[in-house]
């Protein structure tokens, strides 16, 4: 095999991994964009969704029923979080809200494992994971499926944000909360809807990640993989989450294959952060993030 086609294979595998990071990052962006909360509990929600689905399915529930029930559970969870945890915290500084979601992630992780147990579950979505030859480069079918799901999700979210009434109110809330309140938009309802949507995104990402790595506690750690993606793309841009994910995934994989032998194993734990940091020093609000304007 030539060096070039090897390079492309590493690149493609990296891009595919990047899509997986983007899936998680989109959940963050949704909530940050509309309510200014950096939701650290997104990973815990992902774990909760995947664990609930797998446990229901293993107890003999048909695939679609389990999916529907988990879907409902995630919507209810999202609404409950907004109502009982975040609404009383209105008007607190963003960093306080971030720490609240840190506490929240402990509660959700703990409850998920308390309810469903701590053992590792396999998850089979019925998608073959055989490599396919496309233009001389081997590509995993599962990766293609993930990319398709991500594309559908981004398209759905774009349509929701751009062409529906609720999407319009989402954008209004993101633009200026006081102005949105002034024209009669019900912010609590908007936020509940956004959290429910983030719950659904967590379900999709949780199923795909779970099928890839098995459903277990480490699922909630994918948050740490998606944070550099967010920083790179900007916290409030869905396009940024996708492009950031692709850049991070590709550099991570390339660095591991080509630099790993010289520096040492396991550099994927920090290389993404270093890449993101490098970008940040040039553009402090990420690639697509809104510029911060400060008034005295």
């Amino acid at each position: 095999m030539s060096a070039w086609s090897f390079f492309f294979e590493v690149l493609v595998a990296g891009l595919a991994a990047g899509i997986m990071y983007s899936l998680v990052a989109i959940g963050f962006v949704l909530i940050y964009k509309t309510s200014g909360v950096l939701n650290f509990a997104q990973g815990a929600m992902l774990l909760f969704a995947a664990l609930t689905f797998v446990s229901l399915h293993e107890r003999g529930m048909p695939f679609l029923y389990a999916l529907a029930i988990t879907f409902l559970v995630m919507v209810i969870l999202g609404i409950a979080i907004e109502k009982f945890v975040l609404r009383p915290m209105i008007n607190q500084p963003p960093i306080t809200l971030f720490m609240v979601t840190l506490g929240l992630s402990y509660i959700i992780e703990g409850s998920a494992e308390l309810i469903w147990g701590t053992q590792v579950h396999g998850l089979d979505l019925g998608i073959q994971d055989e490599p396919m030859q496309i233009a001389g480069v081997l590509v995993s079918q599962f990766d293609l499926f993930c990319a398709a799901v991500a594309a559908v999700m981004v398209a759905a979210l774009t349509i929701l944000f751009r062409y529906t009434r609720i999407g319009l109110s989402f954008r209004a809330a993101a633009e200026d909360q006081y102005a949105a309140l002034n024209i009669g938009l019900r912010l609590p309802f908007i936020w509940a809807a956004v959290w429910a949507t983030a719950g659904i995104v967590a379900l999709v990402a949780g199923l795909l990640w779970g099928a890839r790595t098995g459903v277990q506690f480490s699922l909630s750690l994918v948050v740490l993989k998606s944070l550099p993606v967010l920083v790179l793309g900007g916290f409030d841009s869905i396009a940024g989450a996708i492009i950031g994910g692709l850049i991070i995934g590709a550099t991570e994989n390339l660095a591991q294959v080509y630099l790993g032998p010289y520096i040492g194993d396991g550099i994927d734990s920090w290389i993404a952060y270093v890449v993101a940091l490098g970008f940040l020093l040039v553009r402090p609000s990420g690639l697509f993030g809104q510029k911060l304007v400060e008034r005295v």
Partner: peptide, 13 residues
């Protein structure tokens, strides 16, 4: 150069 969340995430590095 960085503020708020961008700084918090970069300390994870």
């Amino acid at each position: 150069r960085l503020r708020g969340f961008y700084l918090a995430v970069s300390t994870l590095a």
